[in-house]
Amino acid sequence: MFEQLASTDVPISPGTYFGWGDVTIQSGNLAVIIVMVILFVLALVLPFPGGKRRK
């Protein structure tokens, strides 16, 4: 069991961090925030498919 668990271990890595002054953010968290902002903007500007035909 422990051998199996050990064999599936992924390398331990602190990840990549970005920092500006007192602000520090991990790359994964920053990516999620950027994706959310992009989705928010796209939702406002992109036309909805078939929207004009709907009642």
Binding site: L42, A43, L44, L46, F48, G50, G51, R54, K55
Partner: peptide, 12 residues
């Protein structure tokens, strides 16, 4: 059915 303004990505 829904009102026409629901046909927007803002409601998805």
């Amino acid at each position: 059915d829904q009102p026409s303004y629901v046909a927007s990505w803002a409601y998805v």
